[in-house]
């Protein structure tokens, strides 16, 4: 186990370095965008005088490196600065939205991951049957349809026609968990439909891959029933690629849901990132992107650790 701890520490260190590089890239990218916050906020109402006055107030008249290092100086001490538009601390602006995004992602993952793996095992078991084909066609259709389209279809049936679930997923901090789960069911379902196919097909493929191995043949010759061959003999060896795909999809559930947020008016972090980029609100953009980057780094790390833990050969290297 000491080795794993070693790996975790090493990877976290590398992760911090990655975040630093990403923060430079994001700062550069925001600088490259045409116009700045003064022009973006004032829009049609911008004149030379009020743009200049606003730049001076916000300190935008200083050079780019100076501003970057000033931000970085704060960030290492945990102060991510103030939003340029609202003048409020970034952490205050992002906190609730990020926890909303996490809530929705976890909700969707709780539904999607078991369904995907269970379906994957089933279709591997009944591969090349009608069941396999139908499951594949359905999940591939749902992954191929644009998210907003899936969302609209769900809204049409579940809220407008049948009135079962609300179309607006507006949640408050003081709602009960059950209320929240009901309010956010449709967005969660949309996301489930988007991610299930990928995980299910990877489960199916990695299991079928192993079915040709000699030890599986041995098991079969022994007379082990087909489901037991898969669950007991192949699945443990197929975990590594499945875990990787699951991690990738979990990251997607956090970072790629802007459209779902817009359609269901869900107060998540994606919408905030889009708004802040339009207004060139650099501290907020930076914070959102770093959160997304950290999500990927941590989930990748988790996937690798998971792969090691499920594989005895990697757990006990020579």
């Amino acid at each position: 186990m000491g080795d794993i701890l070693n790996i975790v520490i090493k990877r976290l260190g590398l992760g911090l370095l990655t975040l630093l590089v990403i923060s430079v890239i994001i700062f550069g990218a925001v600088e490259l965008l045409p116009g700045d916050i003064a022009e973006a906020v004032l829009g049609q109402g911008a004149t030379k005088e009020n743009v200049a006055a606003m730049r001076e107030q916000l300190g935008l008249d200083r050079s780019a490196p100076v501003r970057y290092f000033e931000w970085l100086g704060g960030a290492v001490t945990g102060d991510f600065g103030n939003s340029l538009v609202s003048q409020k601390p970034v952490s205050e602006a992002i906190g609730e939205r990020f926890s909303n995004t996490l809530f929705l992602a976890v909700y969707a993952a709780f539904i999607a991951v078991p369904i995907a793996i269970f379906l994957g095992i089933l279709v591997a078991l009944y591969r090349n049957t009608v069941f396999d084909r139908v499951a594949n066609i359905l999940t591939l259709t749902s992954i191929s349809a644009p998210e907003f389209f899936l969302a609209y279809v769900l809204i049409l049936f579940f809220s407008v026609k049948w009135g079962m679930f609300p179309a607006i997923a507006k949640i408050d901090a003081d709602m009960t968990l059950l209320d929240k789960l009901e309010r956010t069911f449709l967005p969660a379902l949309t996301m489930v439909l988007v991610v299930v196919a990928h995980m299910m097909r990877m489960t199916r493929a990695s299991i079928i891959n192993l079915l040709a191995s000699p030890y599986v043949e041995m098991a079969r010759l022994k007379g082990v029933p087909a489901w037991k061959v898969i669950v007991k003999h192949t699945l443990p060896n197929a975990w590594a690629p499945i875990i990787n795909v699951v991690a990738l999809n979990l990251a997607y559930l956090i970072t790629g849901v802007v459209l779902v947020e817009v359609v269901f008016v869900y107060p998540g972090i994606g919408q905030m990132l889009v708004d802040s980029v339009t207004k060139r609100d650099f501290p907020v953009v930076q914070a959102c992107c770093l959160i997304f980057a950290a999500t990927f780094i941590l989930l990748n790390l988790a996937a690798d650790i998971g792969a090691i833990l499920t594989n005895p050969r990697l757990r006990h290297p020579k």
Binding site: I155, K170, F264
Partner: peptide, 16 residues
């Protein structure tokens, strides 16, 4: 006041 930017979300909210 609920901020609904998506035209479809707005109309659905009114209908429901």
């Amino acid at each position: 006041m609920i901020y609904l930017n998506d035209p479809n979300a707005r109309q659905t909210a009114l209908i429901t």
